[in-house]
Amino acid sequence: MTNLFSVFDPSSSIMNLTMNWLSTFIGLMIIPTSIWLIPSRSIIMWNMITHKLHEEFKLLIGKKKINKGSTFIFISLFSIILYNNFMGLFPYIFTSTSHMVMTLSLALPLWLSFMIYGWINNTKHLFAPLVPQGTPGALMPFMVCIETISNVIRPGTLAIRLAANMIAGHLLMTLLGNTGSTMMMYLVPLLIITQILLLMLESAVAIIQSYVFAVLSTLYSSEVN
């Protein structure tokens, strides 16, 4: 099992400096140069996607003066997760979003800042969801415990959902790829077709998981206002 999961933690280094996380920062070298280029079709398409996300997140957050510009945080979050998910689909490139260090460091500060802001500014508003309307008196203490636990585990569920989905697909592709050398020759084309279909599925998962992460973060922020 150690060898199976070692593909997610390569040990490439230069002068004892680990290069695993360099793939996360490659995008930072590409993005600034695109600002000085004449907009191509790909840039126009990306602008259309971000505009659509801005409109959708604006509806989810609500029309409050304090929320102006907060959609750009979630669009940036969507962009960085989508970029890292796609980078992980290339061979020999480290998938940073399949690690809890990366996903939890994105989810926990966001959730913590929402909670601190909410409890300081809207304390009464945050007490209300702990007991849903129409709950019998005998069940109220249990409902408070359940709702509190479900609120506390939110950053964990966000982080685990993203990491588990990225690991699952990559692990399946790795296992199928390792069986290629021991298979019969007439089964190899079937294996290649399966791997191509899995790669298409992983591309869809990369988009869906980054979108889900950003939308859930937006919903959590709207609850504290």
Rank of each mutant, 00 (worst) to 15 (best):
M1F: 12
N3V: 01
S6L: 08
V7T: 10
P10Y: 04
M19L: 14
M19K: 03
M19Q: 09
N20T: 03
W21L: 04
L22Q: 05
I26C: 02
L28C: 02
I30V: 15
P32Q: 12
I38N: 08
R41S: 07
R41W: 07
I43N: 00
I44M: 11
I44N: 13
I44A: 11
N47R: 11
M48A: 14
T50S: 13
T50I: 13
H51V: 09
K52S: 14
K52A: 14
K52G: 09
L53K: 05
E55S: 08
L59Y: 08
I61T: 09
K63T: 11
I66M: 03
I66W: 02
K68R: 09
G69D: 06
T71M: 07
F74T: 01
S79P: 02
S79C: 11
I81E: 04
I81L: 15
N85I: 05
F86Q: 08
F86L: 15
G88H: 04
L89Y: 00
F90T: 07
F90H: 04
F90Q: 08
P91G: 09
P91A: 09
Y92E: 12
T95M: 05
T95G: 03
S96F: 03
S96I: 08
S96L: 01
T97Y: 00
S98H: 06
S98E: 13
S98V: 02
H99L: 12
M100N: 04
M100E: 07
V101S: 06
M102F: 15
M102G: 00
A107D: 12
L112I: 06
F114T: 01
F114I: 03
Y117G: 00
G118N: 10
I120F: 12
K124I: 03
L126E: 15
F127S: 13
V131M: 05
V131E: 03
G134I: 08
G134S: 03
P136R: 08
F142V: 12
C145T: 15
C145M: 14
C145L: 15
I149L: 10
S150Q: 12
S150D: 12
N151M: 06
V152L: 15
R154K: 15
G156V: 12
G156M: 12
L158T: 09
A159K: 01
A159M: 03
I160F: 11
I160S: 06
R161A: 04
A163S: 14
A164D: 09
I167T: 08
I167R: 11
A168Q: 12
L171G: 02
M173V: 02
L175R: 04
L176H: 04
N178A: 10
T179A: 13
T179Y: 10
V188F: 13
L191E: 13
L191S: 10
I192M: 06
L199H: 06
L201F: 13
S203K: 11
A204Q: 12
A204H: 04
A204K: 11
V205G: 00
A206I: 01
Q209G: 00
S210W: 02
S210A: 15
V212Y: 00
F213D: 06
A214G: 07
L216D: 09
L216V: 14
L219E: 07
L219A: 01
Y220E: 10
S221D: 05
S221Q: 12
S222K: 14
E223A: 12
V224R: 06
N225Y: 10
